[in-house]
Design a protein around this nucleic acid. Structure first.
Length: 475
RNA sequence: GCCCCCAUCGUCCAGCGGCCUAGGACACCGCCCUUUCAAGGCGGCGACGGGGGUUCGAAUCCCCUUGGGGGUGCCA
């Protein structure tokens, strides 16, 4: 069996396309099939080489490795044009020298009659036009006018459409470049693709591709499976205007590829009957079955992705978390992220603080904020305004600071010995009531990393310096 | 306009004629734990769009309707 993922390099790989790639990949890995990557760059004007590279880089980042390709349709133009010639010869297609305005006029006329445009008659009548006309040649497939177009879809069942509702369609542009339908039909046949797994937005095009394939004389047809679309808040097909949908943006935003893959595997496919939705790839592969794919569109829920990413982050062994967070920080710094540049991923404190930050992380992008109080110059250390307000509003805060300072001046420097509850309780106060003030004084914000670990990593002098500064500011 | 697809909690899924006073997950709310915040534990809120059938019995089958989406491009 052979499947293919066939993106057009007209933009970054977005989550919708990624889900399609993932389901093809899952199918291939489940059945031991061959996964082919094919770049559909027949539209020269919109295709860009950087996207061809970007798509591959993103697939690699996700771990969706392909077995063949990437094939480039741009390299196979002669095959498509040859196919077009055969269609002209057999009478299944015709050439047209109609201008775009004339084509539009035909469309208008057809619409007025409640029908669908056919350009053959008019094309024949006009021919190449008069000498001096600025006409160009395009090739069109002549669709049947009677009967029904039908095929069996693994997820939708039998799909039937009357041929008289399907207009003639272009197969070669006036620029001489073949159109998607033709290239798609030729490639799926010549590459021996057995299963076409793609988005539902391509459902209606299947009839045209199948008609081309039949007219070209390719026996049989692949099994089709049209996946439910991924939609945004407005339930419309997911696109750029729905915010961050470029997968490379998710990488930069600190998401783990395995979390994104796991999350995507849940959209349009039943969650495991028993056990967690968070599960190893091997299990997702083993469980995959085209016949169980859902029918209705799925909303891409960032909240659930966040939760999933947190689950994966928490499950990471600390050394691996340190390594991956370090990689992320270096990449962010390289992108020019100033807040991250100060963080030193190779320092022992980075690892120590990350270990206590782990349960609090939703994405790797939050690492710098949690660690900022540690990796800053004392001269640039500042307490956030709202956190200072919390500190200032704390009951007997001056007394608390004095006591804590005294304790930290002499205590043994271990996380256990630093523990501040005893001294607070000794003052007759509840730790809950004053802890916020201490977080603010030491970490610059009233909520953050566990205080005693933060203090331990910070060291005695820096900690005392901050506490004394806060005490002094109180007056 | 025409054609096609779809329809269970706010969201993602379970359900494939009786086990459903509809189950799980995310989100949300509350409680517990607690060094703030998280994490974790426990609990709560919350859905079969509507109308006809079929059947002893429909979330599950059929029809209509409504709603949503997709297609109808010299995009794929």
């Amino acid at each position: 069996m052979r499947v293919r993922f066939a993106p057009a390099p007209t933009g970054f790989l977005h989550v919708g396309g990624t889900r399609t790639a993932l389901f093809n990949w899952l199918f291939a890995r489940h059945h031991g099939a061959t996964f082919v990557l094919r770049i559909e760059d027949t539209d020269r004007d919109r295709s860009r080489e950087e996207w061809v590279d970007g798509i591959q880089a993103t697939l690699r980042w996700l771990g969706l490795d392909w077995d063949e390709g990437p094939y480039r349709q741009g390299d196979r133009i002669p095959q498509y044009l040859d196919a077009a010639d055969r269609l002209i010869a057999s009478g299944d297609a015709y050439e047209s020298w109609l201008t775009e305005a004339e084509l539009d006029a035909e469309r208008e006329a057809a619409k007025a009659h409640g029908g669908v445009p056919r350009f053959y008659e008019r094309s024949t009548a006009v021919g190449r036009g008069d000498a001096g006309d600025e006409r160009t040649r395009s090739l069109w497939f002549r669709t049947p006018t009677t009967g029904t177009a039908e095929f069996d879809d693994v997820v939708r069942g039998r799909v039937t459409v009357p041929w008289d509702t399907i207009a003639d369609f272009m197969i070669v542009r006036s620029s001489g470049q073949p159109v998607f339908y033709l290239a798609n039909a030729v490639d799926d046949a010549e590459m021996n693709i057995t299963h076409v797994i793609r988005g539902e937005d391509l459902l209606d095009s299947t009839h045209r591709v199948l008609a081309l394939r039949a007219a070209l004389g390719h026996p049989g047809a692949p099994t089709y499976a049209h996946l439910p679309l991924l939609v945004g808040h407005d339930r419309a097909k997911l696109s750029k205007r729905h915010g961050a949908v470029a997968v490379e943006d998710f990488r930069d935003a600190g998401y783990l590829p395995e979390a994104l893959v796991n999350y995507l595997s849940l959209l349009g496919f039943p969650a495991p009957a028993a056990g967690s939705e968070v599960r190893p790839l091997a299990e997702i592969i083993a469980d995959f079955d085209l016949a169980r794919v859902n029918h209705s569109a799925a909303f891409f829920d960032h909240d659930k992705l966040d939760w999933m990413n947190g689950e994966y982050l928490r499950a990471l062994p600390v050394p691996e978390l340190v390594e991956r967070a370090g990689d992320w920080c270096r990449a962010a710094a390289a992108r020019g992220d100033g807040a991250t540049a100060a963080v030193d991923p190779s320092s022992p404190e980075f690892a120590a603080l990350l270990a206590v930050a782990q349960k609090r992380l939703v994405t790797l992008a939050e690492v710098p904020a949690f660690l900022a109080h540690h990796f800053c110059d004392e001269s640039s250390f500042a307490i956030a305004d709202e956190s200072w307000d919390v500190l200032a509003a704390t009951e007997r805060v001056d007394e608390v600071l004095d006591t804590v300072i005294a304790h930290l001046e002499t205590c043994e420097w271990t996380v256990e010995a630093i523990s501040l509850q005893p001294v607070i309780v000794a003052l007759g106060l509840k730790p809950r009531a004053v802890m916020g003030a201490l977080y603010a004084a030491v970490e610059g914000r009233h909520s953050g990393l566990p205080l005693f670990d933060a203090i331990h990593a910070l060291g005695r002098e820096r900690t005392l310096g901050r506490l004394r500064a806060a005490r002094a500011r109180l007056g």
